[in-house]
């Protein structure tokens, strides 16, 4: 056996030396010597399976966009209202549900406008049966910064900008997907128990009203109020950062959204 294996191994090894030398040479040439300047984004035809494949069966597809609330910041279970919503929908419909959560912590309305320009996000929107979103909390509170200087003028300015962006966002969603139901989870006042709560509450109400107004201009866009959920016992439903909801708070939001989504037995939204 020894007599046979040795020459074989030597032959294989010598061959592999040549092979790897060749590979190494190619790597050096490709990476260091050649300077490729031509760039071909014409790869659409090389990837043959480009067709949107997500929508093959009867399951519900949910697209979630927006800020940290959609992300679930503050929930010890890490689910956020999207997670609880999915659980409830699963129970209701009995089928599996696909979620694409593209929310980014700290996202503001202008960030979302930019994000909605990305082709893959657009694809997810187009494929979705249900779209849930939160946006505006960071425009309004800027991580608590706005509270220090309750400058009504600058807040008014950002409100106008926010509404403008919001209509662009709704428009972009509707353009990609004219059929899906859009649920925009509204703003609440996390600072309701702090000083000057009257002023902050008035501002939040103001923003919510304006946002609901613009939502009404679009078909099947539902603006879901959350202000009342956190009105009376904010401390029970807020996370320790006193800004994001905690698990209980998210469950409240999820219940509210879930009650608005009707599913048929086979799992398709009406």
């Amino acid at each position: 056996m020894k007599k046979r294996t040795l020459p074989v191994i030597i032959a294989i090894s010598s061959f592999s030396v040549l092979l790897f030398l060749f590979g190494l040479g190619w790597a050096v040439k490709d990476q260091l010597v050649d300077t490729h300047s031509e760039l071909q984004p014409s790869t659409k035809e090389t990837a043959g399976n480009t067709e949107p494949s997500a929508k093959k069966d009867n399951k519900i597809t949910v697209a979630a966009i927006g800020d940290s609330l959609t992300r679930g910041t503050g929930d010890d279970n890490g689910k956020g209202y999207v997670g609880y919503l999915i659980e409830q929908l699963k129970k209701k419909s009995g089928s599996s549900i696909a979620v694409a959560n593209s929310a980014i912590k700290g996202e503001r309305s202008e960030g979302l406008v930019e994000q909605l320009k990305q082709p893959q996000i657009q694809r997810q929107i187009a494929n979705a049966d249900v779209i849930v979103m939160t946006i505006g909390g960071n425009d309004l509170f800027r991580g608590g910064e706005a509270l220090q200087s309750l400058d009504t003028n600058s807040i008014e300015d950002s409100r106008i900008q926010y509404i403008k962006n919001l209509e662009i966002i709704y428009g972009a969603i509707r353009k990609q997907n004219p059929k899906a139901e859009v649920f925009h989870v509204g703003l609440y006042n996390p600072f309701i128990n702090m000083q000057e709560s009257e002023l902050t509450t008035a501002i939040v109400r103001d923003w919510n009203f304006a946002a609901a107004e613009s939502a009404a201009k679009f078909e099947k866009v539902v603006y879901i109020p959350t202000f009342d959920l956190f009105q009376l016992r904010a401390e029970d439903y807020l996370y320790s950062d006193q800004f994001h909801p905690n698990a209980e708070g998210y469950k409240l939001i999820a219940e509210r959204v879930a009650s608005l989504i009707t599913v048929q037995e086979e799992g398709k939204t009406k």
Partner: peptide, 13 residues
């Protein structure tokens, strides 16, 4: 395949 060949060349190195 070319990518792998190049990478294995580097691995070998």
């Amino acid at each position: 395949w070319q990518y792998i060949l190049m990478e294995f060349g580097l691995v070998w190195f």
